[in-house]
């Protein structure tokens, strides 16, 4: 039977730095390998829509004819299955989490018309 078992921890907490961060001023660094959000690089994309088919959350939509790639950020579960599936390696994961949003929109990346020939 005892009491005051917590004293040691409590006293230490009193004299040590807080475990939390002073958030808006000090931001937590993301781990290099963290899966935060999907990054789409359109240069090599062939719009095969394999990523859309492999997405377990159905967050990705690909329009082959219009050459658009879109993602519902709030629907994405960051499993990076699309990254593994992409045959052209134009998808990757960035460590930063999706920022707070006010509405669950759909982000669309349309192919920028350029001088090179369409494949």
């Amino acid at each position: 039977m005892g009491f005051a078992e917590f004293t040691k921890t409590a006293v230490r907490n009193l004299f040590s730095k807080p475990a939390t961060k002073n958030y808006p001023k000090v931001k937590k660094e993301f781990f290099e390998n963290a899966r935060g959000h999907v990054i789409f690089d359109e240069t090599d994309c062939i719009y095969c829509s394999l990523c859309a088919r492999k997405c377990p959350a159905d967050a990705i939509k690909v329009d082959r004819n219009a050459k658009t790639w879109s993602i519902v950020r709030a629907g994405c579960v960051q499993c990076s299955n699309c990254v593994d599936a992409c045959p052209k390696k134009c998808l990757s994961m960035g460590p930063e989490y999706t920022p707070v949003m006010t509405e669950k929109g759909c982000e669309t990346y349309a192919r920028v018309p350029d001088n090179t020939e369409d494949n």
């Binding site: 993301f30 781990f31 390998n33 963290a34 899966r35 960051q78 990076s80 994961m93």
Partner: peptide, 9 residues
């Protein structure tokens, strides 16, 4: 934190 470092989630 270990999880985030090793697995990404």
């Amino acid at each position: 934190d270990i999880f985030e470092m090793t697995t990404g989630g």
